[in-house]
Design a protein around this nucleic acid. Sequence first.
DNA 1: CTGCATGCAAAATGTTTGCACTCTA
DNA 2: TAGAGTGCAAACATTTTGCATGCAG
Lengths: 143, 143
Amino acid sequence: MTTVSAHGARPARDTRQRRAVEAALGRADGFRSAQDIHADLRAAGQRVGLTTVYRALQALADTGSVDTLRADDGENLYRRCGSVSHHHHLVCRGCGLTVEVESTAVERWAEGIAARHGFTEIRHSVEVSGSCTGCARAGSGIR
Amino acid sequence: MTTVSAHGARPARDTRQRRAVEAALGRADGFRSAQDIHADLRAAGQRVGLTTVYRALQALADTGSVDTLRADDGENLYRRCGSVSHHHHLVCRGCGLTVEVESTAVERWAEGIAARHGFTEIRHSVEVSGSCTGCARAGSGIR
DNA sequence: CTGCATGCAAAATGTTTGCACTCTA
DNA sequence: TAGAGTGCAAACATTTTGCATGCAG
């Protein structure tokens, strides 16, 4: 990490495509990949380049206004998230339903073991996935 | 995922390249990517195809004899791990030094919140990274 | 008017697959 | 000897980059 100023990046210019990406992100409930967003926009008649979607999403992530998550297959997923504070996700592998969960317990645990091993500049990622009630009932057509 | 029998896959045939990959994995301390292993072998004079390395690593992962981890940039990392039981990793972003940590606390937390939200078939991934004492001192030439 | 933003095409990455050949069991 | 394992090349999928053009500020 070379002098990265997390969160607060510069404002970013206000363009049609930028707004479109944000809107699409707002419309979605769960996490969406750049490609998903691109398809959504295209389906909605909005013409925005894939490259731009990637750049917009990246910019939003830098700002801290969207949450990032890496799917099991390596795809990057984004989601406009409600709480600004640090939190983790509980995602349904069946339908993508996402619940934001908070846990000072885990945070502390991470800090703790890291410190115990002499590590500094801690960063952690915690993802919990499963099958939500609906999908479990549907017979786990789980990914 | 279609009918995957986690862990105990079939024995796998004993070949030179298979052994080479396992050996390379054993030589390394931290996590290594398929490409890394391939380079290591090649450097050691061992001639093994990249494809084979990928396949061998995948096979080992299926067996459960190696740990898998996804790097920040999406690369898949592997490591021959000591404990067979479930555990997480504390990785140094500077040098790759890895410490295996166990935590029934986190396990329980994950199960708990998942259950609270009606989720079943829970799966979770927890990764903690930071800068180890050595690297911190060296002035965080952190990735 | 300045220069960040856009978008196309091309490049880069990491990983997988088709297929003929090799070698283990 | 049967069939798993190997390896090369080509296919793939996602993301990034070069560069000419467009538009916000």
